[in-house]
């Protein structure tokens, strides 16, 4: 059976290598999504604040990050930065940094949209009851905003996970790159190698992203009742 899937996945450490690649993918996704949520919420609250300078600066940050292709950002921090300044960041650090910069910007905009969609009288009533600006945010605005935020956050998370294969352009062998290396070597003897390996990668991405969609649907259903 020269073209079987087994002969690809069972050869040497191929399966273990795919898992190592998957680990890199998962790790970058987890770290950057986590950081983006943590940093994006305060950034979004600041963006919706009345202080023009603060919200203006964040607006510029968001627009700059949004128009830059992820690949450009990766190259900028991995290659250009060390060319200009000698600061040599690791591929892993750059990956998390760039994905967090992107995620934070998008997250902040989602938070801003959710917060401003809460009727003004909610905030004014909270203030009138004597709550400080911070407490009004934390106790009244945020809990209501979170529900409106959820679909957008889920969408952002799956988009970030699916964009991680870009990291192999800065020499970080993620799941996708390991798959390619295997296809190149196994493909010399097994002409279906690319079908098996990319099929497997498709399945893995599906198994990561699908439960996230399910979770969001479940939460939305629960909060509605």
């Amino acid at each position: 059976m020269p073209d079987s899937a087994l002969s690809v996945f069972m050869a040497g450490r191929n399966m273990a290598r795919l898992m190592e690649g998957l680990w890199i993918t998962v790790w970058i996704s987890l770290a950057s999504v986590g950081l983006s949520v943590v940093l994006g919420i305060p950034a979004g609250l600041l963006m919706s604040s009345k202080k023009k300078i603060v919200s203006g600066i964040l607006r510029i940050y968001l627009e700059v990050i949004r128009v830059m292709p992820i690949l450009v950002l990766l190259f900028l921090f991995y290659y250009s930065l060390s060319k200009v300044s000698g600061i040599n960041l690791s591929a892993y650090f750059v990956s998390v940094l760039v994905f967090t910069l992107w995620g934070t910007a998008e997250m902040a905009d989602l938070v801003r949209a959710a917060v401003t969609s809460i009727p003004v009288h909610q905030r004014e009533s909270a203030r009138a009851l004597g709550l400080s600006e911070l407490r009004a945010n934390l106790l009244v605005i945020v809990p209501q905003a979170v529900r409106r935020l959820l679909p957008g956050v889920i969408n952002l998370t799956t988009r970030m996970i699916k964009t991680t294969p870009f990291v192999f352009f800065i020499n970080h062998p993620d799941l996708m790159k390991v798959g390619q290396q295997i296809v190149e070597v196994a493909g010399m003897r097994n002409h279906l190698a690319s079908v098996w390996v990319y099929g497997f990668i498709f399945l893995v991405y599906f198994l990561i992203c699908w439960p996230i969609s399910l979770l969001s649907r479940w939460l939305e259903g629960r909060w509605k009742s």
């Binding site: 191929n14 273990a16 790159k177 290396q181 296809v183 190149e184 070597v185």
Partner: peptide
């Protein structure tokens, strides 16, 4: 290279 046999590639043992 990591995907250009026979010049530079990664074998099945990594």
């Amino acid at each position: 290279f990591s995907d250009k046999p026979p010049f530079g590639f990664v074998n099945e043992n990594g």
